[in-house]
Amino acid sequence: MLVFAISDKGGTGRSVTSSNIVYRRALQGQDVCYLDFDFGSPTVGAIFRVSTASRGTTKGGMHRYLEGEIPEPTRIDVWTESDRDAIRAKPAGAGQMVLLPGDEGGGEFATFDGEMLKRCVRLFAGLHEQFDLIMVDLSAGRSFAAHLALAATAQLPRIPARWLVFHRWTRQHIIAANGLVRGDHGLLDVGVEHGHDRDALIDRIRFVRTAVLELGSGDFAHLRPAQRSWLNEIDRELRELATRHGVGLTTMLGKVPLDPVLQWREQLISDDDVAGTEIANPETVFAFDDLAKKIVDDTAWEGL
């Protein structure tokens, strides 16, 4: 299955959340890979702590492959090449976890041609043969990478494809996430342009809320009553706004709580970070696990 991670704004935690989903899925025994389609800023290697690709690879990555300069993009086996001991210890029964990094010094494409589209289609089809989950991390905002992904999936109707739109739980982000999907030149418009059916495509798009504050949790025990009721009021307004903009509960796949580890250092959260050093919250891992299961759970994707 192809899963595309996209967001309208930067700083939504799109890359760190999708990396962690991939990691949880691998721990659940599936073969997974992660494609860095954020051509302007190919830094996913840093999240996986693969130092040879922390700013993209120099050995020929996604950008050069799509340009037709190399026959296949470099693959990095995260289990063996990560610098973090906790990640390098591959647990029994875990699946393959492979990173396909971008190129160091690559840039956004200004456009794409038929040849590039062919190469993209071939890449996706080849990866589908090998991996249960292919996570494609697209850059923030409207990009040619997103156009390319829409055009390629339109040519691969037999490979299941799903879209995750990441947004923070704020007014601006809710409006922007809706705009990215339904606005002018949004995902639906561009998808239809490339041959997708609008209704079928919309059923394949779900929203993921990130850095969410849980009002019922213990974190708020120290707040003054006035602050708490103000937050409740804002949250209610946001929920109404989200429903009006089609970003409400019915189209939400899951949410990731605010976790300092994700805010200050974007990284994979291992079980040791929760149970051993306790720097990360168990709710965060629970949220990732839940998302990793829901991505492939057809009942979470039934037509609305």
Binding site: R122, A125, G126, H128, Q130, F131, D132, R158
Partner: peptide
């Protein structure tokens, strides 16, 4: 790749493999 692109195939292999 050309063979795998054939419309006769349903692309739903029973397992993933290298």
């Amino acid at each position: 790749d050309v063979v795998q692109e054939s419309p006769v195939l349903d692309l739903r292999a029973p397992f993933r493999s290298n």
